[in-house]
Design a protein around this nucleic acid. Sequence first.
DNA 1: CGTATCTATGCAACTAGTTGCAGTGCAATC
DNA 2: GATTGCACTGCAACTAGTTGCATAGATACG
Lengths: 181, 181
Amino acid sequence: MALEHAILVSLAEKASTGYDLARRFDKSIGQFWTATHQQIYKVLARMEGSGWVVATHVAQDGRPDKKLYDLTEDGRAELRTWIAQPAEPEAARSDLAVKVRGAAFGDPKAVAAEVRRHRAIHQERLDFYLANEKREFPDPSALRGHRLHQWLVLRGGINLERGMIDWYDEVIAALTRKGKR
Amino acid sequence: MALEHAILVSLAEKASTGYDLARRFDKSIGQFWTATHQQIYKVLARMEGSGWVVATHVAQDGRPDKKLYDLTEDGRAELRTWIAQPAEPEAARSDLAVKVRGAAFGDPKAVAAEVRRHRAIHQERLDFYLANEKREFPDPSALRGHRLHQWLVLRGGINLERGMIDWYDEVIAALTRKGKR
DNA sequence: CGTATCTATGCAACTAGTTGCAGTGCAATC
DNA sequence: GATTGCACTGCAACTAGTTGCATAGATACG
């Protein structure tokens, strides 16, 4: 499983609380791995048990106390080992694609409308990623190390969103063509 | 959950056994939804309990008996209802992208090699899809109804694979550029 | 002749992930 | 002054999906 390892990567970049991780997963890392805060807390506890991370209790005033997690040497070693291992080629999952395939057994016009809605959502995501790129990586050619890698993953997200939007356009065109359904 | 509905779509196209479905999920439908045979048998049993499908026992000689599943009116209604409902925008999950992001905490050269391996796998998939398209949909402009929808989903798979390959190329180039790592 | 693969179904035990709920205290909005 | 939202953590119960195993006759390969 990779949530543990996604968390290791995230913590290797910056020691964080579960709450921070959950927000980070909603943004950058979340492009290619999502998790709810419940799942993150659960996994963090297990990781602490495995000795991959240590928690430091931090008292704050005006806010609840927090537990700041950081990698241990074992955690770093585990991350290195995991990165060196081959990954399974991932299988995409898309409800919407299943609905497109089944459109003839429902209402194709409604499916087209739903695709249009998704197009708008992904257009927004794309704009968000593009704005991030401009702000955080104004000069990509100068990047090295983990900043370069972060940028590459962002590029992956941008690429994916663009691809989806293109496909949505194709689907909308085909489903709303005159004379055909 | 959508496995049930992916199965409904598949059965709406053609009454099938669990075994057939499992193979179908390895190919066309599997582009956007995968399932193992165990999961399929389990879900089919539940769907039969819900009255969405009925099984007919078919004796064969030389081969084990099989259970041919077909949709009931309830199943068809359920499918229509589900298709009409909005779908959640899907979250991508990619081990490999997480590894790219964490490359600096492991061996970036090894990550590049792994990306190259995935590139080859996806190139193969792309070729497979393109061959399918040529064979099964030689004249896309003439398509209507569920054949059109099947083709659209295949186009989605083709599009996705192309996008991934492009991104892999970008990553490989960046990770193997001289003077940078 | 023996081994592997295909057709065909399924159980049991497990891991991963989701949903719903709960609590606290501060700051900002209405 | 009351409600909403944010920061922060977590439990409990559930659903979905994975892995390993079992069975069994037929055919194909070496």
